[in-house]
Design a protein around this nucleic acid. Structure first.
Lengths: 194, 194
DNA sequence: TTTTTTGTTGATTGACGAGTCAATAAACTT
DNA sequence: AAGTTTATTGACTCGTCAATCAACAAAAAA
């Protein structure tokens, strides 16, 4: 019973299913059939809409990054002060939406994907540049020449915390991660006055 | 022309080849045949000695971790002072042996492996506990109650720097990584005197 | 109403790859 | 010398999976 206008719906369902499947399984070794099944359709249809498995992965990756970017923008829009801006970035980074176990698992696997698939690498590059630019914009007014160094450290720390989350066994804890990152910032800023 | 006593030689060759292959290819999607070929033998022989692909991966992982652990021990043995001990850990972590592109690539893939394979997860747990205990031992005398927090941050930062290295395009730069991590420690320690 | 476009799937193809096996041979043991 | 253990591989099995295809159905356009 085909209704028209299914394409975006199907694509969205596949993207969502891909993230869940990769995150849950903890590996890129998910079959198109599994993804399609979770999204409630046949694997043939998945191929029909995306053409290839790789395209499905890339679409999922774009989606994860888009959500994150949107959340950061949202937080930033309400935060005029440098320190509040920093805080907004951290909060978004470890928000319940982005810092969910399966999403983090997906991130880990996308990192791996970026090692082989040029488009994945490109995408990740865009993300890093944006993050860096956001951090610098917030840091420069309050840390001057040290901003670059602090931003680099902070963004590596954020990645590290993500990695830890992907590997952790217990319950997900975004608040602790924010605290850790915020602590890094606080200490660095305090240190500026020698 | 079989000589006797080949087993350890073959196994070592396979382990080495596995790391190179995974690191270079940037993916766990390496075939036993590829690994065996790089190690100069047939895939049948690889199976003969290791039984399964997973065992080969685990052996490679153990090897990477053993090298790292040895290097840390070596550095620590010559460093009695807390600060020197910290430095030794950092230097070993980013030494040319461990911080090589293909090794780091292998690490990234082992992290993924740890998500699915229990033994890989266990191994990684051992590594993290040891690192943490080393950091704490060095930090406690100089940072007291804050030691736990600082150690956690530092080890996440180290992971983050590894991740960055795996994803980076340019030449590998261990010195910069050490500097970054050392900076984190310095700032944290200086902050203790409010 | 015929035609075209869009949605949908079961069945099939074709490739690839882990693991097994039978066979061969050198080296040790008795 | 006969027997056993260790080393080694080419060929094969068996499963899996991405991708394609043929066919069918409903909506939209003509």
């Amino acid at each position: 019973m085909p209704k028209v206008g299914m394409e975006p719906i199907r694509k969205a369902a596949l993207v969502k299913a891909t993230i869940v499947e990769i995150g849950q399984k903890g590996s890129l070794d998910v079959t198109v059939a599994q993804i399609a099944r979770r999204a409630g359709m046949s694997s043939a249809l998945a191929h029909h809409y995306f053409g290839s498995k790789e395209e499905i992965f890339l679409a999922a990756m774009r989606h994860v990054m888009a959500i994150y970017a949107a959340e950061v923008r949202g937080g930033l829009a309400l935060a005029p002060e440098p320190k509040a801006r920093l805080r907004a970035i951290l909060v978004a980074s470890f928000s319940p939406t982005n810092f969910r176990r399966d999403v983090v698992g997906a991130w880990l696997n996308f990192w791996v994907l970026a090692q082989t698939v040029p488009e994945a690498k490109r995408l990740l590059g865009v993300y890093y540049r944006r993050l860096n630019s956001n951090l610098l914009f917030a840091l420069r007014p309050i840390s001057g020449a040290r901003a670059g160094q602090i931003a680099a450290g902070l963004s590596a720390l954020i990645d590290g915390l993500y990695l830890r989350e992907a590997l952790a066994t217990g319950a997900s804890n975004g608040a602790a991660a924010v605290k850790m990152a915020q602590d890094y910032v606080n200490v660095q800023l305090r240190d500026l006055g020698r």
